[in-house]
């Protein structure tokens, strides 16, 4: 069996997630199953899937903020040399906000509503360094300017006095103050209008180049991701069902779920000739055994209820589906 080649091959991987499983404590309910992916230094990795597929939970694990009712039952999460799952609470706290930064979808609730934004910047800085209030203020203003915000005004505002775009920018500023190695952006643009969202993503890419950090970009919508990411993973039911170079996945989606996600994109420039495909079954219907998508899959087979391993199709693309084999044979034949 050929293991997924996009992971674990290159040496300059910043984040390596291996065989990660998360379950509800004292029960057998698995929320994440055998997750495998890695993010190279300075790249944007996209994670796509519908809500409840385990994307945000993955982010939570990487931040080391799993709630006490959940536990990591297997696998490892490595950031550089440090193993996140075995760090103490204190060590984790030092990494959070400093080496790993987090941006959330809900920009309105990113800053605590009754504390002024500037105060919260100072709080972050002083939690990670010994700076005085005055120095911290200077740093905060500097970074607020960096994201093209009217720094003084934002500094003295409560979060509900700012617009969505401003808040997300302020959030980014707070995230990059310590030049983090990894930024986790959990649906950073979903709640924003399209143009503002695009600008935020532009800003993120720009900053990524400047800081040379990696970004884990989480979204439920492929279209947010395809233009920005180098690699992409598609999650369903707590598993990655397809992973690979974004271009490769786009050009040749193997797993029926990926295929459906891609097809359901509206293409404004094309005339729609056929009916848009609708997904079978309820969203979130997850098969316990075998391929999680098998209960909704249009090309389901008997073997899908067995364990479906990841198999690769070329060096930069792999999927957990029986169709990979068919695809390979097809290529062989056509060649």
């Amino acid at each position: 069996m050929i293991e997924n080649k996009t992971t674990a091959t290159s040496e300059n991987n910043l984040l390596v997630v291996e065989n990660l499983s998360v379950t509800v404590r004292n029960s057998r309910e698995k929320l994440i199953r055998n997750l495998h992916f890695s993010i190279p230094q300075g790249e944007i990795f996209g994670l796509v899937g519908e809500s409840g597929s385990g994307k945000s939970l993955t982010a939570t694990v990487i931040l080391g903020m799993l709630s006490k009712s959940l536990e990591v039952t297997s696998g490892s999460v490595k950031l550089g040399q440090s193993e996140i799952t075995s760090l103490s609470e204190r060590e984790l706290r030092n990494i959070r906000g400093k080496e790993i930064a987090y941006l959330s979808q809900n920009y309105q609730s990113f800053f605590t509503p009754f504390i002024k934004v500037g105060k919260q910047f100072i709080e972050i800085i002083r939690c990670h360094t010994d700076m005085s209030r005055k120095e911290a203020r200077k740093v905060a203003i500097h970074w607020l300017n960096k994201v093209h915000l009217p720094a003084e005004r934002v500094f003295n505002s409560f979060s509900d006095e700012l617009s969505g775009g401003q808040l997300q920018r302020a959030a980014i500023a707070s995230a990059i103050m310590f030049r983090p190695k990894l930024i986790i952006a959990d649906e950073p643009t979903t709640a924003l209008d399209v143009l503002t969202g695009e600008r935020i993503l532009d800003l993120l890419s720009e900053l990524k180049e400047e800081l040379n950090c990696s970004i884990l970009l989480i979204s439920h919508d492929l279209k947010h991701i395809i233009n920005r990411t180098r690699t992409v993973g598609v999650m369903y039911g707590g598993r990655i069902v397809e992973i690979g170079k974004t271009s490769a996945v786009l050009a040749n989606p193997i797993h029926p779920y990926t295929d459906l996600l891609l097809q359901s994109r509206l293409r404004l420039n094309k005339h729609i000739q056929h009916e848009l495909p609708t997904m079978l079954g309820e969203p979130g219907l997850i098969a316990e055994e075998g391929c999680p998508f098998s209960k909704r899959c249009p090309s389901v087979r008997e073997s899908c209820s067995n364990k479906v391993p990841m198999s690769s199709l070329g060096t930069h693309h792999s999927a957990a589906c029986h169709l990979v084999k068919a695809e390979r044979e097809e290529r062989y034949v056509t060649r």
Binding site: L63, M65, I95, G97, A101, Y102, F110, Q120, I124, C127
Partner: peptide, 10 residues
Amino acid sequence: DYIYAARARG
């Protein structure tokens, strides 16, 4: 959510 975010900021 803002508590989650504050934790995530360390």
